[in-house]
Amino acid sequence: MIHSMDVSELKITAELANLDLTGEDLASLGNEVEKILDYFSSMMEADTAGLAAGKAGSAANRLRPDVRTPGDADALLENAPELEGRFIVIPNVL
């Protein structure tokens, strides 16, 4: 049995994932995460000696020619929440 996630680990994980967890989330998600990690621990019983992590049977060496294919940049800017000229703006109060 490996250790499950305690609250401090959950907080570090949430920070890495850029999620703010409120007290309520912290409790409910924390429980659920713990339950699933406990369940994952069954993998620890499997014998993985001699097994290598492979990659799904995709062929190697897929390349595309170095050709410019102009896109519609303006359409993308229309989806931006805030613009300043052609720049996308985000708040940054120092």
Binding site: A17, L19, D20, L21, L29, I36, L37
Partner: peptide
């Protein structure tokens, strides 16, 4: 992300990050 994602998505992001 906190306001935009639902709880199952947050759960899986947390698990996957961990």
């Amino acid at each position: 992300r906190s306001e935009g994602f639902g709880s199952e998505v947050k759960l899986r992001i947390l698990l996957g990050t961990y």
